[in-house]
Amino acid sequence: MTDTPLLKVSGVSKFYGSRIGCKDVNFELWPGEVLAIVGESGSGKTTLLNCISTRLLPTAGSVEYRMRDGNFRDLYHMSEADRRFLMRTDWGFVHQNPADGLRMAVSAGANVGERLMAVGDRHYGKIRETATDWLGRVEISADRIDDQPRAFSGGMRQRLQIARNLVTGPRLVFMDEPTGGLDVSVQARLLDLVRGLVNDLGLAAIVVTHDLAVARLLSHRMMVMKDGHVIEHGLTDRVLDDPREPYTQLLVSSILQV
């Protein structure tokens, strides 16, 4: 890890009319670090994630990102073209529902290759080779490369979505409930895979989840949200083992023990 953060979020607020989406959120994210945002549904996790990932314009605050040239740039002062270019090269976004992040009507190979073609790759053979390689890394067998994601199971779709996002070698990945809707054994495999990839590639990631087990496994640090406010923030093990806020204590004690 270096001394300079990758992402600086300061004073981000989002209001839906008079209702609060999220309020006055500040944090920094370092390269290679995984931050989990947890909280119950309606607590503003996804709103915050969307505000940071430029999918939703915040009402106030700024989000600065350190570009590959080392300079910080305010995302909301960049041109839309630059922002979209950043989103499809240096960033990834993994949706809860793979259908939102994949093109369901084109083959797995084309799904993985899309980002490469978007940045100007024009050699079919090389694109296919890279796609095959990435399918292997997310444990999808190479003979499924010409199948459409509709023919894939939920877990495979989610892995394909991850491959599609990582193919351009991003430095920052956003994940919105990446294991939502998957059964436990598939979840475990996916978490293993994500953990491996994050370690190998040195990715920074922001993971939104309501599942504390996911946060425990994946993240280094976590933020607990309630009613749009960040109420507790610290190292994952500290927050989960020694929760200070009453709400966090409630959250931690609500985990079913089997």
Partner: peptide, 18 residues
């Protein structure tokens, strides 16, 4: 407007793959 034409090649890729 932003000259994002990667998708057009996805279509051509799909043609070759099939």
């Amino acid at each position: 407007a932003l000259e994002e034409y990667g998708l057009m090649h996805v279509k051509l890729y799909e043609d070759i793959a099939i």
